[in-house]
Computed example of a mutant assay.
Amino acid sequence: KHEYEYYHLLSGQDFPVKTNRQIDEFFAQNKGQNFLEVSDRLETQNPDRYRLRYQQYHFLQDRFVGKKRNIFKYIDFFSCYVQRYVGINRTRKISIQSGSQWFSINNDLTRYILNHEDWITKHFKYTYCCDELFIQSLISNTRFMKTLSENLRYVDFIWKSKHNLTPRYLTSDDLFLIEKPNYLFARKFTSDSMSQFRSRIQESESNL
């Protein structure tokens, strides 16, 4: 059974901003570290909506809502306010932490996450957008907190509306990221900007 030293979670609009050789060398030099964000950024952006993600039960989320903005979404959130009013807070006994869902983690942490599947299901079933919560909360107050380093991903968030904070699309003006040692990946790209980055990375590789 083969195991890898590192596992990287990337979106379909992520792209490396370093050569394969540079990426391999970086992780070889930083073996044992986990590159995962744990911060209060999400909570400070919109505290009320942040708490609604996990303190109450989103029973309609998986079956009727998903990513769609429909009547069931409003019913679902209304039910959460009712739950809050009557005193339901399902996370009183755990420490909720948050951060980006994109990461580069080593095999040790990966096995720890997989071995705690039941704990994750118990505390995060019927929550909303828990992909930005469950790993950070799981490892809170464990030895893994001492292994954490910066996320290695460049993301520039912009507000598209009051409740929609999203990464902007990168352009040729962002090619400077290739020279920044703290970033191995970035998001998000169009097909044109991805092509520009690929060409510049290949050019830098030929100069190594």
Rank of each mutant, 00 (worst) to 15 (best):
residue 4 Y to H: 13
residue 7 Y to E: 11
residue 7 Y to D: 04
residue 13 Q to R: 06
residue 23 I to E: 01
residue 23 I to N: 00
residue 25 E to V: 04
residue 29 Q to L: 14
residue 30 N to S: 03
residue 38 V to G: 02
residue 39 S to V: 11
residue 43 E to D: 12
residue 44 T to Y: 10
residue 49 R to C: 00
residue 49 R to T: 01
residue 50 Y to V: 03
residue 51 R to Q: 13
residue 52 L to H: 09
residue 58 H to E: 12
residue 61 Q to L: 09
residue 64 F to D: 02
residue 65 V to C: 09
residue 66 G to C: 12
residue 69 R to F: 08
residue 70 N to Y: 05
residue 70 N to S: 08
residue 72 F to Q: 09
residue 72 F to I: 05
residue 80 C to R: 07
residue 80 C to Q: 06
residue 85 Y to G: 12
residue 99 G to V: 02
residue 101 Q to I: 10
residue 107 N to D: 15
residue 107 N to C: 13
residue 108 D to M: 04
residue 109 L to I: 05
residue 114 L to P: 01
residue 116 H to V: 03
residue 116 H to P: 01
residue 117 E to V: 11
residue 122 K to T: 12
residue 126 Y to V: 02
residue 136 Q to L: 09
residue 145 M to I: 11
residue 148 L to R: 08
residue 151 N to P: 03
residue 153 R to D: 02
residue 154 Y to N: 08
residue 156 D to I: 05
residue 157 F to D: 13
residue 159 W to N: 12
residue 163 H to P: 00
residue 166 T to N: 11
residue 171 T to Q: 08
residue 173 D to T: 02
residue 174 D to S: 05
residue 183 Y to T: 08
residue 186 A to E: 00
residue 186 A to W: 07
residue 188 K to H: 10
residue 188 K to V: 07
residue 193 S to Q: 04
residue 195 S to W: 00
residue 196 Q to A: 14
residue 197 F to W: 02
residue 205 E to M: 05
residue 205 E to S: 14
residue 206 S to L: 15
residue 207 N to Y: 11
